[in-house]
Amino acid sequence: MNEIEQSEVEFEQELRGVFARVDAPRGLKERILAARESSAQKVLAIEMKPRRVHWHLPARIAATVLLTAGVSGALVEHHYDEQRKAEKAREQLYLALQITHHAFQHVQDRLAEKGQPHE
C-alpha cells in the first residue's frame, strides 16, 4: 500500500469515527408514541362521526325536476292548445267551403230550372 492509499484508508477510518450515530433527543420516543396515539384517535373520530346529511343537493335536484316538469307541461299544453285551435280553424274552413258549395249548387239548380244555360 503506497502513501496515498494509506492516507485514504486513514481518512476513511476517521470518517467512520466522526460519523458515529448520535443519541436521539430525550423524550423523542414518547413524543412519537403520543403523536401516533393522537393521529389514531383523529382517524377513529373521523370514522365514528355520523355522516352529515346534506339536504342542499337533494333539494336542488327536486327543485330542478319540478321546474323542468312545470316548464315541459306548460309547453306541451301550449302545443295541444295550438293544435286544437288549428283543428277548429280547419273545421270552420271546411264548413265555410261546404256552405259555399251548397250555395253555388243552389244557384246552379235555379238557373237550370229557368232554362238558362250555365256559364
Partner: peptide
C-alpha cells in the same frame, strides 16, 4: 414501540 426504541437514534442521526 420496540422499533422506535431500536431505531430512533439511527433515523435521527
Amino acid at each position: 414501540e420496540q422499533l422506535v426504541d431500536e431505531h430512533q437514534s439511527m433515523v435521527f442521526s
